[in-house]
Design a protein around this nucleic acid. Structure first.
Lengths: 177, 177
DNA sequence: TGCGATTTAATCGTATGCGATCTATATAGG
DNA sequence: CCTATATAGATCGCATACGATTAAATCGCA
């Protein structure tokens, strides 16, 4: 917990002459903006994913696998910022639907390697994410907002000392794009 | 924060010379940035809220009530972008812990009015949200990011036609009832 | 006035997230 | 070689989110 930077703007803590009750507004909470934006994304994706019988979490799990296959559950969890207790049931379901494969690593039977199957790849190509991009209404600001939010996430995780996800350091190869 | 403002490489950009697999990277997904930032916020708040025996959702519910009391479940839901099926159990729990009060509106027995109790107000004053603000590491960019994300949320909800929340622009219509 | 349509919460079932714990496997030391 | 420790997933329990449905109250309108 570092020093508060020069200006700790709004949100919650500006020492001001107004009573706490009035400073403490949801509209000043970045965490609430993110929380509610996440709900909004879920609702925007729902009609699309429903048609394919996928949930949002299943979807991002498939996307993560499409860019790096044969990951262990732990490695996949680092990409997604999720633990095995969350991932295991999701991966099992995606396995039964035939989108991916789970295998114990022969070299280390503790690990489970997860691979996308052709059906999974095919499915991803069917998802018209463009419509959701459109729905963001951000236009050319899209990349900038994405970058800010990603940075926000990384800062928060760093400050929280990877309390529940060790995901520190190296995984962050700057989203160069 | 004005950074490269080139083009929107976004996430789904259809026209490109690269294969779909390579464009489809989590690092290009704004929805994933928001999703994971939300998880990160939850982890940042957890140690603070745990000490007070609150969950994050309970916390924002109390905050919402602190800025406008005696709301119906529906009105509170509009503020929080949640439905009664999510709110009811949360409010019941906050009632049993003595932080708020739930009463059927005598004028319309269908509605339940929710009010913060002194214990709830007192609790809110104890929450050191400043440390989380600090953990965002955004410094002076904080308000800007908050604004962008809020706008993003509102755009998404509008595009989704308030599928589950009619909360759009003028809620007055609603509360005016 | 009477009754179906509408509204508001609440209930139910499913799918996450996550802390705590358990199991199986691998590794280190003696 | 054999056990103590560590590691990776999986299991369990609790707390959201949310679609679908239900129950109760109110409203609309002939």
């Amino acid at each position: 917990m570092s020093v508060s930077k020069a200006k700790a703007p709004d949100l919650t803590a500006p020492s001001s002459t107004v009573p706490a009750d009035e400073r403490r507004q949801l509209s000043n909470f970045l965490c609430f903006a993110v929380y509610s934006a996440n709900l909004a994304f879920g609702r925007a994706y729902k009609p699309i994913l429903d048609k394919l019988g996928l949930t949002y979490t299943q979807y991002i799990a498939l996307v993560a696998l499409s860019e790096g296959d044969d990951l262990t559950v732990g490695a996949l969890g680092e990409k997604l910022f999720l633990e095995s207790n969350t991932l295991t049931p999701i991966l099992k379901k995606l396995e039964t639907t035939g989108y991916l494969q789970r295998r114990r690593d022969p070299a280390d039977e503790r690990q489970v390697r997860v691979s996308l199957l052709p059906a999974g790849r095919k499915l991803l190509d069917k998802i018209p994410a463009a419509s959701v991009v459109d729905a963001t209404g951000l236009g050319e600001d899209f990349p900038e907002v994405q970058k800010s939010v990603t940075k926000l996430r990384d800062n928060l995780l760093r400050a929280t000392q990877g309390r529940s996800g060790r995901a520190s350091a190296d995984d962050d190869r700057k989203s160069g794009t």
